[in-house]
Amino acid sequence: MPSVLKFGGQAVFLAAIAVVVGYFSASPRYHQIPEGQSQIKLAIQHGGARIEDCRKLTTKELSKLPSTERRPITCSRERVALTIELSIDGKVIYADVLPPTGLSGDGVSKAYKKFLVPAGHHVIEAKLRDSKRTDGFDFDQRIEAELKQWQNLAIDFNAEQGGFLFR
């Protein structure tokens, strides 16, 4: 092959590689969520109530313990599971029982969920039970929101700050 042609071939080849690199470095574009949708992200990390209340040890119980471990109060550390419910426009889209983490069930309960909803006006209600009661909820909050396309509405939970935080 004449050297001009060879040189041309090299230039074409290297240009083609550059085009491939340039193209795939940002295309084809990826749609994470469809048009017209918005997202609700629920991220809970909260410890339920202890299953047993702390109580005083009897003198008999105390005397059985080694002297260095004699504390007058004992607390079982196990926590109750959280019961959670999320509804949009009156329809429950998520209901779950979140067991505590940790080997002895003494850690926080966790949930991290994402839901797609059509953009627009919605009534969002979140409920949570973290006590030993067997029915009803300890927290029940409802907001009305105008969700824009691709908006991300985060629902966090912090008991000290009053419960669910919609942001």
Binding site: A26, R29, H31
Partner: peptide
Amino acid sequence: LAEVPGEVGLDWFYLGAYP
């Protein structure tokens, strides 16, 4: 973070597995 990055141009060389 108040918005989902609905459409992104991925670098498929590095992020091809992300979807």
